[in-house]
Amino acid sequence: MNAKEIIQAFPQPEGKILRNIDKDACERAVEQILAGGKKTLRELVDLIVEPGRGVDVQARHALHSTAIRVGGPGKTKARKAFSTSLAETLSDDRPNAVKGFILRQLQVCAGPEEGGKIAPFLTNPEDHLYEYAAQALEAMGPSTVSHFRKAYPKASGAPRLTIIQGLGVHRDDDSREVFRKAAKAKDLETRLAGLWGLMRIASAEDADLLLAQSAKEKGWGRIKATAYCMELAESLSNKGRKKEARAIYEEIRKTRKADQEDYLRESADRELARLK
């Protein structure tokens, strides 16, 4: 059976929703897709179209179901084979919207070994491909961090912010300088991403930078930058670096003098009492 025949097991909307779904038939279809290997998978991906350019509800449902069902305990070999074949379809000539959908399925099932096929999209600003690629790589775990490091110098705008955030998600110690530079950027959200990254790697030596920047920020920037200082202190305290944590709380206590920030002084006081 070809993919077009196989996916007939999946329902079309009836009264707007997928109410008449046959579990056993769908599960059998997933098995058939997997048994069909690379050829059937490529046929299936070919049935997926740009939103608004045709009906592909069954094809999307079938691909996602297969990406989900091929994962789980004890299925490493099948999952890897499927993910490799799926990742290969990213290099075909397909609409960005379809590539975005494929990236989102790889987020569900692919391991870090497919990172190299996903990474080129990190710098692609079109149709949120950078976002889908970053989220797929983040889901695969810390071993994909090298892709973010390599992409960073080539990226600008929204992809660059997403990459800085990805480095923070992975708590990448080696990106300390990237975070420091971002923490002094003109754009507020980039500054906050940099400060967040430094907080994520629990960088005690950057505590002064976080505190100074948080004191400089106004409004939303001040709220978030101060929050990152508080979280940095918490991380350091949890790591047994109580002296450094204490210094942050004392600085917060000393510098947040406005009446509207007295809850910060109290939070710092509570933590200082705990650290005694």
Partner: peptide
């Protein structure tokens, strides 16, 4: 426990600048 793919759904990545 022992289900790496399932764990991906517990903390799915967020779109920047939200975290």
């Amino acid at each position: 426990l022992n289900d790496e793919e399932a764990n991906r759904f517990l903390n799915p990545p967020m779109s920047a600048p939200w975290r």
